[in-house]
Amino acid sequence: MHIDIISGKGGVGKSAVAAALARLHARRGDRVLAIAMVPGGGLGSHLGLRELTFDPQLGVDGVRALELDKAAALEQYVHIYSPIPLVAEVGRMVRIFDVLAEAAPGVREIVTIGKVAYEAWEGPWDRIVVDAVPTGQLASQLQAPDTIAELIPTGRVREQAARIRSELTENSSVTLVTLAEELPVTETLEGFDELEGLPPTRTPIIANRLVGPPPPATDDSSAAAAKALAFHADIATGQAHWLAELPDGPRLPYLFGTDDPLLVSEFLGTVLADHR
């Protein structure tokens, strides 16, 4: 069992990369669960699913996928850990948790990351791929077990937090995705440093949407073609500059004009296959 946590600054193609990895491992025979940590993102479309729900659904290549609905996650959490046998009381408890978890540091996060750990323990999966929150918020998610340990002296949640922490320490890795541009690279490198010392192992940063050097223009190239090639060269030069700031890692190509999210995840999976 391994948990792959995929993160990155917003809009760098995290969901596509997460879906590509899920499909890649599923094709190799793993039972794979893909989890969207933020509802309403693109993970479902990259797996051929119109909408994700809190219950896993079957997508392409046999990948199952769900999204974390925070109300549903909270309800499940309270159901599992509530000492109260009465269903009616559980409903009341969920409402209280819903309000207070917004304020109690670490509680909301432990419910979220707790669902991932719960699937790791209870589910039939060989691999869980998490399309995680943006890098800026990831550290607080991963620190939740420690936050809880600091604030809460004893009790079920604390025990739970310790168990989640050891699950993450033993069986998870985090991969950041970035574009080869100034802000994404700077923030990704900062984010990479911030993750040091947190439970998941860090794997090499993935650079996405690289155009590569343009082919040379020919004498009969049109004015528009010359302009496009100059533009292409400018982008390639800029990307090469920012790539040099990154440590070695997978490099993914820019997919010109591709509308179909399934094609994107399939193609990126074939590139990533060389790295896994």
């Binding site: 309270v78 850990y81 509530s82 000492p83 109260i84 009381e89 009341r92 408890m93 209280i96 948790f97 309000v99 207070l100 304020a103 109690a104 509680v107 604030l151 809460i152 002296p153 004893t154 009790g155 079920r156 949640v157 604390r158 025990e159």
Partner: peptide, 22 residues
């Protein structure tokens, strides 16, 4: 009483303190 139950899940007087704050 409700908060004590909730704290029983969480452990410690966390929710009571948070509720106090709110």
């Amino acid at each position: 009483p409700v908060l004590r139950l909730a704290d029983n899940i969480l452990g410690g007087p966390v929710l009571t303190e948070v509720a106090d704050f709110l």
